[in-house]
Design a protein around this nucleic acid. Sequence first.
DNA 1: TTGTATATTCGGAATATGCCGAATATACAA
DNA 2: TTGTATATTCGGCATATTCCGAATATACAA
Lengths: 156, 156
Amino acid sequence: MPNIQNETDRDEQRFVEDVARLLAPWGVPLAAARLYGYLLLCPRPVSLDQITEKLEISKSSASVAARLLESYTLARRHSEPGTKRALYAVADDYEAMIRQQNRLLDALAGQLNAGTELAVPKAVSERLGEMADFYRITRDAMADAVSRWKRGRRRQ
Amino acid sequence: MPNIQNETDRDEQRFVEDVARLLAPWGVPLAAARLYGYLLLCPRPVSLDQITEKLEISKSSASVAARLLESYTLARRHSEPGTKRALYAVADDYEAMIRQQNRLLDALAGQLNAGTELAVPKAVSERLGEMADFYRITRDAMADAVSRWKRGRRRQ
DNA sequence: TTGTATATTCGGAATATGCCGAATATACAA
DNA sequence: TTGTATATTCGGCATATTCCGAATATACAA
């Protein structure tokens, strides 16, 4: 009979690494990316010591990784009254990453639009304007989808 | 009377740097990001030598930057018959970046879904499933918006 | 105030990245 | 084939990033 505990551990570990690999192209450092994968599997907020042990990273790394995720609003810090202990869990607003993307899309659209004012050939200026429109439209579509989804969820 | 040529150059240079700054958070290296900004302003495909001169980077950097943009499908290589010269221009399918994002979103959704099969508490499994749904929905919304936009453009 | 449990910051080592110039490869023309 | 114009690859340097352990700071309890 296989050792269930170890098998589960192995699967979870694999999940953590897989998620980390996906987050890496977004520029998320390894420690933070793995932490996110781990948090996804945690039913309750976890302490830095638990993180340190599970992920086998130093406590300082755990600390900076956790705060990095918090700054991305991918994780949330749950402080307990009566102690300094910090507990971290995945943020329950899933659209954080999407919102982040949208901000960038927005900035890019703005910049492209600014380019239309430059002393460039008309064809170039038109292309820039078109690209700006395109990015704004997709951004809006995403924002719409997100708010529709949120409304749908509330109703359940 | 101000020197028109220099003023234009200065504005364009500024545009290039601004675009580069926006692309940086996406993990695009500086040289490639600046090249993209420059290509946005070019009415015609440009050669590596022109890039080298305008952006004041080495030819090797120009070469790798251009091919990097091409691999992102942000730029397109236009080869001329009868010579080895490579000319680069921005890709005219603006949705390349969006599609790229969507691929990542898709992969993440898939991974989250895989997590629901793990031996984790029901609440965790449900959360993972919900997140996967959410990402898939926003991805679909974006894809829809893109194809609607494309249809609209064709008709003009 | 002191002690304790905890988090955060700091300095440094290891590693990765980005860029350059030189060397090399490639496609074409004569 | 040789020469020429061009692109690409390679090795190395400089810089940036990541992570760690040690030192420090902080909040709380006694």
